[in-house]
Design a protein around this nucleic acid. Structure first.
Lengths: 112, 112
DNA sequence: AGCTATATGTAGTGCGGCTACACATCGAGC
DNA sequence: GCTCGATGTGTAGCCGCACTACATATAGCT
């Protein structure tokens, strides 16, 4: 999948990944890899700034901890983040419905 | 729907709109409006440059005609365009499958 | 000592859709 | 005959945002 396709949907992915659990950035990347069956391999330069944006927006909060001598910044959703996630899910469904309709349902070829 | 969500999928929409018919730019915009139930209202500044890109890429060819004194540039798919459309449809399905999986299928949120 | 995995972060680039504007013709209304 | 809106095409410049590439640091293995 071409990487740029994520444009505009990254926040949704990150929020969804943090839904119901606390993860640090590195773990988020791995969770997305696994959750997507390896299709998503986001570079740190994409994820970390995005997380900071989400934090600035109040959608997540972060906590520093030290595990095995390495510092971790653990993120979790706020309530606004929960709402934002819900909104993103809705928007995503609308979006796919619209595009699916155009890509497949013009009526020309599916004349049935 | 936020406008930027289209990023990376505009070509697919345009190609799909031209699939099986010839349309000029203005008509493409209207076709997309109708085909999306009004959800898509692409500005000309988005569509025309995109069409030129597609033409430069060899995915469409254009023909000038004059209807009622007004000049129209009518576009239609080439064979490469057909292939590109097919590829775009495939990519779109992969894309939605991946995102759907992350957004909905974590298993965590279904606990409540 | 060097390499990899873990872990976070910044700087700069570049694509591409958007806003805003410009131009042209026709029909309708005044 | 002038303006205004609909039709129709097009360009210039902006800006968001993901990307590439790099910088930094520790732990553990060899």
């Amino acid at each position: 999948m071409k990487p740029d396709a994520l444009r505009g949907h990254l926040d949704a992915l990150l929020l969804a990944t943090l839904d119901g659990r606390e993860l640090h950035g590195y773990a988020i990347i791995e969770a997305l890899q696994q959750g997507s069956g390896g299709a998503l391999d986001l570079p740190t330069g994409t994820v970390y700034p995005a997380l900071r944006r989400l934090e600035r927006a109040g959608h997540v909060v972060s906590d520093w901890s030290t595990v095995g001598g390495r510092k971790r910044r653990t993120y979790k959703l706020t309530q606004t983040g929960q709402k934002a996630l819900h909104a993103e899910r809705t928007a995503w469904q609308e979006f796919t419905t619209v595009i699916d309709g155009v890509l497949g349902g013009d009526g020309k070829w599916a004349q049935t």
